[in-house]
């Protein structure tokens, strides 16, 4: 096989892996949107906050250490213990549930029956608040997150795909990051668990009922407040998983919440109300932006076809693709058709 083609396939595989990570963030959006009609812009910041909290608990950081030291002139930073990863994840989950409860109790309780766009803007406010709060609580420096996930390229895949070069001696097998492989497996498990939860448990059924019709759900005795807190906690859990994966890949830092913005075009593509849509949309965006970047920045492809090359297209490709897509199919690939009643 020619070099360009092999390289293209490798780009495609890596795009699939990146897409899985986008899909992980997008899942959280879908959960909340389906159950409460709130488009939660803060999902990305929730992932950042979860990752920050996880690192903070694992390292035994004192919350608000910077603030306390400034006000009281003390010099405290760490409790001096290290919490094992599993325990720390549990603690973080408790924090996320608490956060969900606070958000619902003190914010969305007062915004019932507001227009969706108001709710959307409220979540932007929450995102800002949480961003400042997380940084103040745990410090804003870039942190390393190590929960024992494998890092680096997978030699096994590299060795076992060498034959696919078909006599091309520049080819040494496909390079895939082990972390991406783990993320893929985790994402698949997460989706299966979520689907099973939604289909076969009592709370899952109640959740679907609320998603279908708030008033009808209320009238058969489902507590909206409980369901909303539960859904936000679930979204917090998904955010935690996404935060762990992204954090292990590129460190826990502010850009995490920007990466999460990419989940928006993913949803546009897949449809706001569909869990499979989030996955497929994520894969399409992941593959699309990597391939587009590869084609447009490669001299031998774009250079010969168009006479010029452009780089760093990953910043906007997803959004423009979603924009074009919206014009032709506003509800996305798998979303419910938008019907307007007067």
């Amino acid at each position: 096989m020619p070099d360009q083609l092999i390289f293209g396939i490798e780009v495609l595989l890596n795009g699939l892996m990146a897409g899985v990570l986008y899909a992980l963030v997008a899942l959280g959006f879908v959960l909340i949107y389906k159950a409460s009609g709130i488009f939660n812009y803060a999902q990305g910041v929730m992932a950042l906050f979860a990752a920050l909290t996880l690192v903070g608990i694992m390292e035994g950081q004192v919350p608000f250490a910077h603030l306390i030291n400034t006000i009281f002139g003390t010099e405290i930073h760490h409790f001096g213990w290290h919490v094992p990863a599993v325990l720390a994840i549990l603690f973080t989950m408790v924090v996320m549930v608490l956060l969900s409860w606070i958000i619902n109790r003190f914010i969305f309780k007062y915004l019932v029956n507001q227009e969706p766009i108001m709710l959307f803007m409220a979540t932007i406010g929450i995102a800002y608040f949480l961003e400042g709060f997380g940084d103040m609580m745990w410090g804003s420096n870039i942190k390393k997150l190590d929960v024992g996930l494998p890092q680096g390229g997978s030699f096994w895949i590299e060795e076992n795909t060498q034959w696919m070069g078909l006599g091309n001696e520049n080819f040494y097998g496909f390079f895939l990051d082990q972390l991406d492989l783990v993320a893929t497996v985790v994402a698949i498990i997460l989706v299966i668990v979520l689907i099973v939860f939604a289909q076969y448990t009592k709370q899952g059924r109640a959740m679907r009922a609320v998603a279908d019709d708030h008033q009808a759900a209320l009238s058969v005795g489902i507590s909206l407040n409980f369901i909303w807190v539960m859904v936000w906690s679930l979204a917090g859990f998904v955010a935690l998983v996404a935060g762990i994966m992204w954090g292990a890949k590129s460190g826990v830092q502010f850009s995490l919440s920007l990466i999460a913005l990419k989940a928006l075009p993913v949803l546009m593509l897949g449809g706001f109300t569909s869990i499979p849509g989030a996955i497929v949309g994520g894969l399409i965006i992941g593959v699309g932006e990597k391939l587009f970047e590869f084609i447009m920045s490669s001299k031998s492809i774009a250079g010969e076809l168009f006479g010029f090359t452009i780089g760093a297209t990953e910043n906007w490709f997803a959004y423009v693709l979603a924009l074009l897509f919206l014009v032709f199919r506003p509800q996305g690939l798998f979303g419910e058709k938008i019907i307007e009643r007067v």
Binding site: G125, F129, G132, S140
Partner: peptide, 11 residues
């Protein structure tokens, strides 16, 4: 950071 918190809360 405090500015972020205040602005978000104000919104």
């Amino acid at each position: 950071h405090l500015e972020f918190i205040i602005v978000g809360a104000m919104i």
